[in-house]
Design a protein around this nucleic acid. Structure first.
Length: 641
DNA sequence: CCGTTCACG
DNA sequence: ACGTACGTGAACGGG
């Protein structure tokens, strides 16, 4: 991610300086800018002072809202204050959870503002308003008619910059905000927001509402002039509430089972560690690539020196796998040690720490504005990268379970990105194959190796599969050669015959890059833009990197849009049929996880499959090929595939 | 706080 | 001559 941000933050094709990459220059500019005037920021001292703001909100039909809490985790955050803005430059702060005498009664304030926060006809404008929604929901308020400046920025500028308020304020308002850290301090001296001086909290919080409102006015116009309002309305806004409820619902995790896994992994790790030290003849930190490199290249001298781009010892899995293949047990042991350490540290040890004490479930956060393509991301904890590829890994998945009398359902789109490529690039042979429900990797193999589809062997299919993946990633012969362990020459031959059989794909790639060079962005099927401002960079590596990303973005991005539509439709279906108790819990890019009452299983399977497939035909696009969905149910996530 | 590594799609 | 597969987030080491 950092690498990508670095590349995309170089000077753009149009010469706009990118703020991320010019830190000292940025400071010089900002220092000269006058702060947004805060003399109209009002601290609310009596509950009936809020009337004025509610009246204006009703009159204008919109109001910027921001919550202050004592935690970044909305599922355990206490409401400390609320700021409102009804006009540019006019904002107030209502303290309700401060440890101070000036603080208002929380219940009284919430009762007062609940009706207008829930009023359908008044737009509530926020920055990352999913956070505020969850906080309000936990306080008995169901926010609706939400607008989100973070998502507006994301639709306008995905790939250009991050979409947090500090960044947006600097870029669009030339204003450097008061930093959260300035209020609460850092490290040991860090205090809780509820302990922050109320007047300081007022300046900070009211400014946030003011800035949010200013950004909204600006982005509203930009979306219109860029003809992107529809993307924001259709693919972003509906997801706010859907994801909020998925996060609130959470998923049940068997922490006792995880503890037993940690013990098991720990024992294995210790055993392997001893074997490693037996070979190295001394103890060292296996987790340190620096120390591991010393052992491999200086002490044991297993192989010729290999270094990373930055000049440190190369100890990545691909290097170690190569050594293991050549018969070096040491490399194999390190690989096993790494895998088990990863599973223990990142999953079996850490997931229990994320259990919510009240709900006894794990509540992830889905990020709507993190990727350049339209995909979601997940954090705290990331539930989109739970292991599956090895047996030990799959055990982690088995810790995700359903409540009593329930089962989990998983539903995943089959080969969705290849299907999109076929549709997007209008690839005749691929379209035909998908319509006939053929095995796409075998078909590819038969085409490039010139054998009958029934006579394709395993190795040919494996190579063809790697090529299909490579195509989606914006392939190079060098990358393909490395991936499937063939010579550059062979890889080039494969690609030549691939493009000869599927000429439309080459045309798509060339056209996409051409369009991006001229415009600085690419569109996916549904009209979302991803920006690649360094696609004309004079540096070969930066330029090529952006070209591959530009080829990939419409494919990955269109798939994510299909999933967004499916989630919206499924949410509608579940709300429509009030008797259904089933809940959508997780999205893992091409897969959805539901928790379902056993009595509803068959009905739900039918609904999920139907809705996911029917997205192929919507108001926004009609696919020339069918979508297919694999669906499974079981007591835990590990048995679903 | 950055670089490396590795978990997923 | 060059030397990377696309998109993420988390943990760790080391300065």
């Amino acid at each position: 991610m950092e690498f990508n941000r670095l590349l995309s933050s170089a000077i753009s094709a149009y010469g706009e300086p990118n703020l991320d990459n010019n830190n000292h220059k940025k400071k010089d500019i900002i220092e000269k800018i006058k702060p947004i005037d805060n003399k109209n920021y009002k601290l609310i001292k009596y509950v009936n002072e809020i009337d004025e703001w509610m009246k204006e909100a009703e009159e204008f039909g919109e109001i910027a809202v921001d919550t202050e809490t004592d935690s970044l985790n909305p599922h355990e955050a206490n409401l400390v204050g609320i700021s409102l803005s009804t006009k540019i430059g006019k904002a107030c702060y209502i303290p309700i959870g401060h440890k101070s005498k000036k603080c208002l009664n929380k219940k009284e304030v919430l009762n007062k503002i609940k009706p207008f926060l829930e009023d359908q006809s008044i737009k509530k404008i926020g920055q990352n308003i999913k956070f505020d929604f969850i906080v309000f929901y936990k306080n008995g308020i169901n926010l609706n008619s939400m607008e989100d400046t973070m998502l507006m920025s994301y639709v306008l500028d995905a790939g250009k910059n991050r979409h947090n308020m500090d960044t947006l304020s600097e870029i669009h308002l030339n204003h450097k905000t008061i930093k959260f850290k300035d209020l609460v301090g850092t490290g040991k001296k860090e205090i809780n927001f509820s302990e922050v001086d109320i007047d300081k909290a007022k300046d900070y919080a009211a400014e946030d509402a003011d800035i949010t409102y200013r950004l909204y006015k600006k982005f509203f116009k930009s979306l219109k002039s860029e003809k992107l309002t529809n993307i924001y309305e259709t693919f972003e806004k509906p997801l706010i509430k859907i994801l909020a409820f998925m996060e609130i619902e959470g998923i049940k995790v068997d922490h006792k089972f995880l503890k037993s896994l940690s013990l098991k992994f720990g024992k294995k790790i210790e055993k392997i560690q001893k074997e490693i030290f037996n070979i190295s003849k001394k103890e060292f930190n296996i987790a340190s690539p620096k120390q591991l490199g010393e052992i491999i290249y200086n002490d044991l001298k297993i192989t010729d020196l290999k270094k990373t781009k930055k000049g440190s010892f190369a100890t990545s899995a691909s290097v170690l796998e190569d050594l293991a293949f050549k018969g070096h047990d040491f490399a194999k042991l390190v690989l096993d040690w790494r895998q088990l350490s990863k599973l223990k540290n990142t999953y079996s040890d850490s997931l229990p720490a994320h259990l919510n004490l009240d709900t006894k479930r794990v509540h992830t956060s889905f990020l709507l504005a993190a990727t350049s393509t339209g995909r979601l991301a997940s954090s705290d904890p990331n539930l989109q990268n739970i292991p599956i590829k090895t047996e030990d890994g799959r055990d982690i998945r088995k810790a995700f379970i359903a409540e009593k009398d329930n089962l989990l359902i998983s539903a995943d789109y089959n080969q969705i990105e290849m299907r999109i490529l076929a549709d997007l690039a209008d690839v005749k042979e691929l379209k035909k194959a998908f319509k006939n429900n053929e095995d796409i990797h075998s078909l590819t193999a038969s085409q490039i190796f010139g054998v009958d589809i029934k006579k394709v062997n395993k190795d040919q299919r494996r190579k063809a599969k790697a090529i299909n993946f490579g195509i989606i990633y914006g392939i190079s012969q060098y990358g393909l050669a490395k991936q499937i362990n063939v010579s550059n020459y062979e890889a080039e031959e494969f690609l030549n015959s691939y493009f000869a059989k599927f000429p439309e794909i080459k045309i798509y790639m060339d056209n996409t890059i051409k369009f991006c060079r001229k415009s600085g962005y690419v569109n996916n099927i549904f009209g979302r833009r991803s920006h690649f401002s360094s696609i004309n960079d004079k540096n070969y590596n930066i330029r090529n990197f952006q070209e591959r990303a530009a080829i990939n973005a419409p494919i990955q991005g269109s798939a994510s849009e299909i999933m967004r539509l499916a989630m919206i439709r499924l949410d509608e279906k579940l709300n429509e049929q009030k008797s259904l108790k089933s809940k959508m819990l997780l999205q893992i890019h091409d897969e959805l996880i539901f928790e379902v009452k056993k009595s509803e299983i068959n009905k739900m399977k039918k609904i999920i499959k139907e809705e996911m497939i029917s997205v192929a035909n919507s108001n926004y696009h009609s696919f020339s090929i069918p979508l297919t969905v694999d669906i499974n149910s079981g007591y835990n996530w590990g048995v679903l595939h």
